[in-house]
């Protein structure tokens, strides 16, 4: 269950450390984007950096480390990568739709105009009208 760093060969340590640093660095870049970008519709793009290659890099580094340390394939970390990759678009689409709905209903100047929307209810009602 518990393994030490000394069980890992040098090449696996280098590759695993590179993937872990890549994942953590991309997560940091995504968090800087969340904190620094100016509008909500800019900010909603930033965390996807952390959930795509940030989580992917950390998961891959962890998989390489435990596979080399225990001498057998340890790939159950890939569950986290698959789960995060599948669920992030769902959550961010729902959050973006909620933000668009709130901005439109309050007539905010930063709201998206209705013509360029990809709102499904709008297109359905347009088809019904024509």
């Amino acid at each position: 269950m518990t393994t030490g760093y000394a069980d890992v060969p040098l090449w696996a340590a280098i590759v695993s450390a590179a993937f872990i640093l890549l994942g953590a660095g991309l997560s940091l870049v995504g968090a800087v984007g969340v904190a620094r970008l100016s509008t909500f519709y800019d900010r909603i793009h930033a965390p996807t950096l952390a959930t795509s290659w940030g989580a992917g890099g950390m998961v891959m580094g962890s998989m390489i480390f435990f596979t080399a340390a225990e001498g057998r394939p340890v790939i159950h970390e890939i569950l986290i990568g698959v789960f995060v990759t599948v669920t992030t678009p769902v959550t961010l689409m729902m959050l973006g739709r909620a933000a668009v709905y709130r901005d439109r209903s309050e007539q905010n100047p930063g709201a998206l105009p209705k013509e360029t929307s990809v709102d499904r209810a709008d297109t359905v009602s347009n088809h019904k009208g024509s």
Partner: peptide, 9 residues
Amino acid sequence: MNVLIMQAA
């Protein structure tokens, strides 16, 4: 060496 790399990373 590999211990140092992993700990630093």
